[in-house]
Structures are given as C-alpha cells and as structure tokens.
Design a protein around this nucleic acid. Sequence first.
DNA 1: TATTGTTATACTCTATAACTATA
DNA 2: TATAGTTATAGAGTATAACAATA
Lengths: 145, 145
Amino acid sequence: MPQAVKRASLAQGALPGLLGYRLRLAQQAVFRDFAASVQGLSPGRVGLLILIDANPGITQSRLAEAVARDRSTMVGLIDLLERRGLVERRRGDDRRTNGLWLTRSGRRLLARALRRIAAHERRIASRLSAAERRRLLRLLGKISG
Amino acid sequence: MPQAVKRASLAQGALPGLLGYRLRLAQQAVFRDFAASVQGLSPGRVGLLILIDANPGITQSRLAEAVARDRSTMVGLIDLLERRGLVERRRGDDRRTNGLWLTRSGRRLLARALRRIAAHERRIASRLSAAERRRLLRLLGKISG
DNA sequence: TATTGTTATACTCTATAACTATA
DNA sequence: TATAGTTATAGAGTATAACAATA
C-alpha cells in the first residue's frame, strides 16, 4: 500500500468538490495506520470477528451476506481465521451449514483489537470535537441509507 | 461487484460506532451506481482524466504520485486511456518523460462524464440539505488532513 | 549516479461456475 | 429441486525488481 500522498502543487480540477472523492480520501486517511496495525488483521477481517462475536453460531452464508461478499469468498476468509486459531467451524443441526464461533484465543485477540481500535478512533477523532464526530456519523448515515 | 447489502436482523457489535466502517459504507453507497456508469470508466480513471485536464502536460510519474500509485501501475492505466483515444503521450523536453494530454475526444468524453457526475452528486446529496452537504465536506476535510 | 518509463512477475481481493452433501 | 459449503479458475488492481534510455 502506498503511503506518501503528496497532493501538493497540483491542480485538482473538479475532484475536491465531489463527495465520492472526498469520502475515498477520508477513508484512506483513516485506514492508513490502521491497516496492518491491528493484530496483523485487516479492518475487514477484524470486522468479521466483531460480527461473529455479536452473532455466535452465524453461518458462513449469512455472514457473507452481511458483508456483501460471495459465499465462495467467505470460505477463504474463514479458512484464514481458523488457521490462526481465532474462529471455529461447528457443523450445524442442518448439516449443510457451518456455525461460526470465536475461540477463546479469538475472543482475547478481539478484545485487544477493540482497545487498539478505540485508541485509533481517538487519534482520528482528535481533529474533531465530540459534537463534530456525532454530526459526521449522522451525515454518513444519511448517505448510506 | 455485490449489490444487495441486506444488513437486516444481524447484530452489528462495535461496527456502527467506528468512523472507518461508516466511511466505507458511505463510500460504497456513493460508488454503487456510479461505478461502471460513467462512460464505461471507473471513478479512478475519470479522476485521471480530470487531473490531466487540469494539468496538461503532466508526466506519468507526477500523476502517479498525485494519486498515490506506483509509476509502473500508471503505465497500464495510461495505456488503457490511450487505447481508447482519450489521452495522448508526448515525449517531453526531458526526453525521459512523457507529457500527458487529453485528446479532443478525451475532452468531449470528460465533459459528458462531468455532467453525469453532477447529476449523480445531486442524487446522492438529495438526502442532504445544501448546508449539510457543505458541513459533510468540511468534516471529511478535517479527517483527511 | 539518479530518474523515467517500461516489462515481467507476483500478490490480494473478489467473483462465477460447477461439484458434493445435504435438505 | 434448492441450498451450504467447497473447489478451480479468472479478472481487477496493485506492487516490487530489474532494465534501457536519458539526464
């Protein structure tokens, strides 16, 4: 991933006025130091841990739906988390399904990750007042529907 | 690209409170119907056209720097735009460099694309008042530094 | 020596299609 | 017939390393 982001001394044309462009910049800025930093897991993978923790026993297909990925994509993602000993597949009552559960180690790692994420959020949000942060989340919510 | 985004009836854990997560959702929402829709060019490629238009004669390396990509990556991007007759490489005074210019056809396509983008922005921003839109851009700017 | 554009190569993330075992 | 998980495969998008031309 590139890091420098020198946008100096370059005419920007219509770009700075576009919501999509500014959202992308903001997202890149937020993810920059987060990316590889949280226990060696990408934001997306930590997101999976959060969802499994909040929905113990969720099936792979439901989880894939929740994050808008194909179920074939979810196979590899869960493979990785399972290889690292963070997630466990258990065959469901409907024996076509795998229920997903955090292992003890997965819960420990998630707890640590959440503390780091909180610190990261404070760093990011340090440029915003508490009111501004609330307002930003509210405005983003309006866009995302 | 997946589209459905059913996030119904699923516990979300810590996710909804995280700026990075909400930024990603908003960006996905904005890019969803934009993506393949603007003259068959992705947002990133239209962005290149905008930057070349605003900086005629810019070199590949400077452009790569501006969008935080490796210069080897820029080769393929410009190859595509040149193949479509939108961009022209001209050898620079420093004969190691290629200056980049929009062709007449590139300028025409960009003009059309900008009108479509403006319509798209209006659709997106229709959920926001003009004041809210300004506030959102300002808050995003604070984050992106 | 350093920089620009280029090529060869590889890695990550994702999807589609087809298979299997179950329902 | 339909669904869940899986596999094989392919396509974006990106980077790194090495090279030739030029400075």
